[in-house]
Every structure is written in structure tokens, then in C-alpha cells.
């Protein structure tokens, strides 16, 4: 704040206008994000069971959480999902983005890519649930007509999680590709021209120009999809409900189960707070590690 321009009234006017524009999203933020968050935090110190008045129980929920084996299992299952989901999804999306950027200007094709993402999660999950059905599903019909054995997919302890990861990669890869594509468009074409003159081939250009210059967008995509991936829930509600056994009992399902099946809202809030802390930590580490605030273009 070194240069002051205009009179005080003009400044106040500007401030008023600014506030006016901020208010709608502030209301949304306060009502839907800030208040529930604070309430959730308060809830985590109680034994609220949804129906009777809550009693303050101090750190009891947190102490229980520390020795909760099922919570650790839920974290492991979630991490497994993230590991299955993020790398594959990012690589596929990057491939699609580069191909879009190099070979086509067609908005139609871009539209098709983003289509799965436009479908609600619930619809996508239902769609795949039916297609993957062990007895009636059309995917198993294909597998059998090729002479292979029927696969249980979502009904098997070992196959359930990879299947769910696959479903979500199908839904999100196109959207991620569009984000990366936008990033690719920001890379000045003259850099490629210069490289081409120097005799670089496609692979060298990709490794030497595209990837480094795409880094900020790539990190943005990684951070947001990682957070999104930790929140895997709707697909599980529709397809496996945490099962078979507890193979897909991810943290969000575990929270849901405590809150609305076991009526332990207080403990459910505690798990949410723990998850919040875990995600914040991961995000901060990611951003530090990748120097997300700087770009090699500067």
C-alpha cells in the first residue's frame, strides 16, 4: 500500500462496491462452510446421538479415536483408493490433454471428453453397477462370450476397490484433461518452435517443455483431485455400502455409518475433524514440496 489515489470518499465508495460483490459468496461461505464447520468441531466434544440433547464429553471421543482400529482400517482403505485413483487418472488425463492440444481444435471432442463429468455421481455409479452386475451385467456377458470366467467385480473383496477407482477415473479423467488442456494452451507456442528449430523431437519437447511449464496447473489438478479422491463416498453408497466385508469402508463411509446408522453424531464429528487435519497436512506438504506458487514461465 504505497500509492494512495483518489479522495477518501472515492475510496469508501470502492470499498462499498467491493463488499457488495463479496457479500453473496460470503453468505454462502458462512452459512454452508464456516458455520457447519464450527458446529462440527463443537459436536466432536459431545456425545450427541441426534435425538437427545448433547452432553459435553471433553476429549473422550478423541481418546477413543486414537485406539480405533476400524478408523485406521478406513484410513488405509481410503489411501488405497487414492493410490489406485490419482496416478492413473492424472496420466490418462495428461495423455488426453496433450493429444487434444496437438491434434485437434474440435470443441465437439472436448465436449465428449467432459461428458462423463457432467453426469451426477449417483447416476454414474448406478450405470456402472448395472453394467458390472455379476449375473445380468453386459460387461460380464462380453467377458463370457470371449470365453473367460464371470467376474464378481463389486461383489469381491479384492476387486471392489479397483473397480470403484476405475469408475471414478472414467468419470473424472475427461474433466481433468480439460483443466490440463487449458494449462497447455497457456504455454507460448514460440517455445515449441524454438525447440523444433533446435531439432528436439516430440518426446524431448514433452519432457523438456510441456511438463515443466505445466507444473502449476498439474499441481492444482493433483491437489484438488487428491482432496476429492479422499472424499470418495457417493460411488460407495450406491455400489458397495462399505462392503464386501469392509473392503470399501472408506473414511467418509465410516463417518456416515457412525452418524446415521449408529447414531453417534459426536464421534462422527470427531472423525471428520481428524480427516480435516489429515487433509490440511497433506495439502500443505504438497504445496511446499511442489513450490506451487511459482511458475517456470516467470
Amino acid at each position: 500500500m504505497t500509492i494512495r489515489t483518489g479522495t477518501r470518499t472515492a475510496q469508501r465508495n470502492e470499498l462499498l462496491w467491493a463488499l457488495l460483490f463479496i457479500v453473496p459468496s460470503m453468505i454462502g461461505f458462512i452459512v454452508f462452510f464456516a458455520m457447519p464447520s464450527v458446529r462440527g468441531l463443537l459436536m466432536s466434544f459431545t456425545n450427541w446421538d441426534l435425538l437427545r440433547p448433547a452432553k459435553f464429553t471433553g476429549l473422550a471421543n478423541y481418546i477413543k479415536l486414537l485406539s480405533d482400529k476400524e478408523f485406521r482400517h478406513a484410513l488405509r482403505v481410503t489411501a488405497y483408493y487414492v493410490v489406485l485413483n490419482i496416478p492413473l487418472q492424472t496420466v490418462i488425463a495428461l495423455g488426453m490433454a496433450v493429444m487434444l492440444d496437438r491434434f485437434t481444435k474440435s470443441t465437439f471432442i472436448r465436449g465428449i471428453l467432459i461428458l462423463p463429468w457432467l453426469l451426477p455421481n449417483i447416476i454414474v455409479a448406478l450405470l456402472w453397477l448395472w453394467m458390472l452386475d455379476p449375473t445380468l451385467g453386459f460387461i460380464n456377458q462380453i467377458i463370457m462370450s470371449l470365453g473367460f470366467e464371470r467376474q464378481p467385480f463389486l461383489g469381491s473383496v479384492t476387486q471392489a476397490m479397483p473397480t470403484i477407482a476405475g469408475i471414478n477415473i472414467w468419470r473424472h479423467a475427461g474433466y481433468t484433461a480439460i483443466l490440463l488442456f487449458a494449462g497447455l494452451q497457456n504455454i507460448p507456442k514460440d517455445v515449441y518452435e524454438a525447440a523444433a528449430i533446435d531439432g528436439a523431437d516430440e518426446r524431448q519437447m514433452f519432457m523438456g517443455i510441456t511438463l515443466p511449464l505445466l507444473r502449476p496447473v498439474l499441481i492444482f489438478v493433483l491437489v484438488t483431485s487428491l482432496i476429492g479422491s479422499f472424499q470418495i463416498f457417493d460411488t460407495i453408497v450406491i455400489t458397495t455400502k462399505g462392503g464386501p466385508v469392509d473392503a470399501t469402508r472408506v473414511v467418509y463411509w465410516y463417518i456416515y455409518e457412525y452418524a446415521f446408522v449408529r447414531f453417534k453424531m459426536g464421534y462422527a464429528a470427531t472423525i471428520s475433524v481428524a480427516l480435516f487435519l489429515i487433509l490440511i497436512t497433506i495439502t500443505v506438504i504438497q504445496m511446499r514440496y511442489f513450490n506451487a506458487d511459482t511458475s517456470d514461465l516467470d
Binding site: F32, T224, Y256
Partner: peptide
């Protein structure tokens, strides 16, 4: 990013669930 994290994790038990 931080807002996204907040939105995501705390909301579920508090209301979205």
C-alpha cells in the same frame, strides 16, 4: 485449496451427511 479441504471434510458430519 484450504477452502476446498474445509468444505469437504467438516461438512459431512455437520450437515451434508
Amino acid at each position: 485449496a484450504i477452502a476446498l479441504v474445509m468444505v469437504s471434510s467438516m461438512l459431512l458430519a455437520a450437515c451434508g451427511g
